[in-house]
Design a protein around this nucleic acid. Structure first.
Length: 123
DNA sequence: TCCTTGACCATTA
DNA sequence: ATAATGGCCAAGG
């Protein structure tokens, strides 16, 4: 058979590997996954691949939009499912959105801890 | 073959 | 904060 869906292409394999690598309790954006998969600028392809069959065994719930919001319509079946799965691994979702500074995979901890404005450093 | 759609994103206003 | 725009590119009609 030659049904070469995106999930069986090289890109698909790389994307799935990147998603599988997201640590439990963390989240990453579609764009970030694309970048890690060696496909910068192809966030939409990530969404497509996750939509295809085979994503069931992946931690797809850890993939969010760049602003931390869930990519499904609020209240939809997939939306509720994603919220449930994330909550199950300790990721807090508030109003369909996750705080990337707190749960983001690539968050820079140093910058986060020192985020408080220091006196004498610009306003 | 052209056109539309989409689990997206960065920039600009 | 929201809205419009252009880029991205694989599927499906």
């Amino acid at each position: 058979m030659k049904s070469a869906q995106s999930t069986s292409t090289q890109a698909g394999v790389a994307i799935r590997a990147a998603v599988a690598a997201i640590p439990r309790g963390c989240v990453a954006s579609y764009g970030e996954i694309a970048r890690r998969a060696g496909l910068p600028g192809r966030a939409r392809l990530v969404g497509r691949v996750l939509g295809e069959a085979g994503a069931a065994s992946l931690p797809w719930q850890r993939v969010l939009r760049a602003d931390g919001r869930i990519a499904f319509p609020v209240g939809s079946r997939a939306f509720r499912e994603q919220v449930r799965l994330l909550a199950a691994e300790g990721v807090r979702v508030h109003r369909g959105r996750v705080d990337l500074a707190a749960f983001g995979w690539d968050r820079d901890l140093d910058r986060l801890l020192w985020a408080a404005p220091r006196p004498g450093r610009r306003s």
